[in-house]
Design a protein around this nucleic acid. Sequence first.
DNA 1: TTCACTTAGGTAAACGTTTACCTATCGACT
DNA 2: AGTCGATAGGTAAACGTTTACCTAAGTGAA
Lengths: 331, 331
Amino acid sequence: MATTIKDIARQAGVSAATVSKVLNRKDQFISEETREKIWSLVKELNYTPNSIARSLITRSSRVIGIIVPDILNAYFTELVRACDVAARERGYSTILCNSDSDPEKEASHLTFLASHGVDGIVMAASDLIPDSELLGRLRIPLISMDREIPDLDCLAARIDTDYEQGAFLSASHLIRVGHTRIAFVSGNPLASNTKIRRAGFERAHREAGLSVDPDLIECGAFNHRFGLIATRTLLDRTSFSAMCCMSDMLAMGATVALRERGLSVPEDCAVMGFDNIYIAPLLVRPLSTVERRISEAGHLAIGALIDFLEDPSQPRRMVLMEPTVIERQTT
Amino acid sequence: MATTIKDIARQAGVSAATVSKVLNRKDQFISEETREKIWSLVKELNYTPNSIARSLITRSSRVIGIIVPDILNAYFTELVRACDVAARERGYSTILCNSDSDPEKEASHLTFLASHGVDGIVMAASDLIPDSELLGRLRIPLISMDREIPDLDCLAARIDTDYEQGAFLSASHLIRVGHTRIAFVSGNPLASNTKIRRAGFERAHREAGLSVDPDLIECGAFNHRFGLIATRTLLDRTSFSAMCCMSDMLAMGATVALRERGLSVPEDCAVMGFDNIYIAPLLVRPLSTVERRISEAGHLAIGALIDFLEDPSQPRRMVLMEPTVIERQTT
DNA sequence: TTCACTTAGGTAAACGTTTACCTATCGACT
DNA sequence: AGTCGATAGGTAAACGTTTACCTAAGTGAA
């Protein structure tokens, strides 16, 4: 029952095409009088164009899909927020999907987004390797953030963080202040996401003339729950004086486990996080971590996507963001 | 270029109508043979129906809009997540909007959602009083959560938390353990959201034969930043031995401010939160708080909305959720 | 044979836009 | 007088579905 373009047309005594032209500012050949009449009717009748009908014919929705593994991880909350504001700044909206790191959910979100006609998709860090057959078929412009991804011609840009360097910096920081037995906690051990970080961790040791005890490594997931469990396991298995966690959520879980055993941070065990989520400085013992400028990454991703949408011929962007260490009170 | 229903029809040697009937299981008068041929072509050609075209004609999108003030507040992150899983369980998807507690943004999200044909909208707790003129015009089925809302006939349900009781319980808990000077920190002082809580806070004092010193009240916003600022102000102005914060984010900010001044929690000052967000038990000093069963609220909201969509004649639900105190280590 | 019913499927309009192309009028210029 | 170029706007198809209604063939009974 909402007002349509035809209602406006009828009341203005013109055709729907004329109204459409005015609305879309393709009105160089429309008289000032008609134009004004249309705009005033638009206001009076509270006309809002039906985006669905519009998308159907223009094949563009000005909507961007965002897929993250877990919105409860504050890193993704911040990223999603950043993407959303960046998109809105350029007249786009976003629609969010949680994959739970489940390939089937990811695929079904992808089809959902496609069938809803999103103009582009941002796929954020995940242990998953995306279904390249599906992606290739969908042909939706894509931004990959911090993930392994096949080379597709709909891949508009990659925004990656230099995880190797991030892990290297984190471990080096701990080594510099005297730690020699450092635990390493990260996500899925099979994902490149984790392998690369582990390489950085090991390089830091190598360069310091230290070796890495495999007993100190625990990889599984990036959430706080795994941080808690992994730390308990590590504590039962071996001893260490510092922990190099590959996400702040892991670090939060680790801290809880350490306290559980009566260990204080950083006196008995130092803890490094990764991501610098907004909660990190708010913890009672503000967390030392690796800063990765989440908001900037989100803006970059959306910017690259929209630039690509507006001109697909431009060269693809491959950004590698350099992280830095932030020293707070847990190291 | 994606496969359409016509491609299927052509290759199956039938009309598009027949394909549509099979796809929608309105195929009682279609032969088994045709049916099988169609389904196998659907698989072979990776056909996915174009939701946009479908929505245009059916006037239903199976998408629900969710408007929250600030997704960075973990309470809303959890709520949104709960709504999303509840919606997916029933074959709906969600689309998320941040209002930043800005009436204009909220209105523009509302029009956005309307023009994108969402079937219903969940509006979560906010200081804002929604634009009833707009809402009435849009006529989109609505769920209101913890907000003041005009009575509209498109209002499918209200899911509210008994804030008066929550604040009462929080303050009573502190009074019971011996505190008499308790600071009260909450959101926008003009919003009913805050007024109601303040009433509960005052009732707790009244029933204990205590009076409330207005100097102990600081209201502004629900985020951690305000918690920090408000606590500094309170500390400069007066003295107290406990804080009754109306969100866990506020409590986190408050804790930081207290430590800043060398005060330890709970020895020098006890702190109560509200919401029981997932981070609350993870803080180094796990936060005592008021539990409000966020996930259940989200499921309830989505359930009520979808029930209403499927049968708008059923009576409206008005749920009042009763909160409970969780005692951890900050009190 | 006729009628009615069932089965299997087709036709075409409709949803609300956009857009390529067409028409008509008016001056101005050759 | 005829042509041309603006100017102002209209026509109708198209996007990919769904659905109310139509058709045609076959069957069974009267």
